[in-house]
Amino acid sequence: MTKPALDELDHRIIETFSRDARVSNRQVASELGVTEGTIRTRLRRLQNSRMIQFTVVTDYRMAGSPNLVMMGIKANPSHVQALAKALSDMPEIGSVVLMMGRYSLLATALITSVEAADQLIRRKIRTLEGVQDVEVSWSIGAPKYDARLARITGPAE
């Protein structure tokens, strides 16, 4: 992933929009002492390079109050890439990362019932070629979480 070097102004723009994603370019421009055009150009560049994304986060309640299920997967090294793809393609899986140490992959899903978790883990994941073990833990709550910091993987806006 190519990361553009961000300067002080970029950081201040990101910080300002992190506080209020709906603030107008004009207001940010006057706050930071630059022109509206500068904010527009910088924002476009930050969006295109996937440094920032403006979107909506809906609350867990709106999705039926699911629990976050974490699945630590040990797999044959030669199967890791194919597994990453297969897991990413499952709509119920929200995140997939490749790991060194602990597990080969760590995946998470938002699940509203034990039956649905069993269906996903036993029938869909454990049956994939190369999976040796799936260690499952259920999140009971998140005392620290910031919805504004993430890895932006989607296509540039």
């Binding site: 979107t55 909506v56 986060v57 809906t58 609350d59 867990y60 709106m62 999705a63 699911p66 990453a84 793809k85 897991l87 990413s88 899986i93 929200g94 995140s95 997939v96 990362v97 490749l98 790991m99 060194m100 140490g101 602990r102 597990y103 760590l106 938002l110 998140a142 979480y145 919805a147 993430a150 890895r151 932006i152 993987t153």
Partner: peptide, 19 residues
């Protein structure tokens, strides 16, 4: 303490979260 290094993020959805 068991730490693993993430070397690639393949999928990371963040549109549903505790608010």
């Amino acid at each position: 303490l068991d730490a693993g290094v993430v070397y690639d993020v393949v999928k990371f959805e963040f549109n549903v979260a505790p608010l």
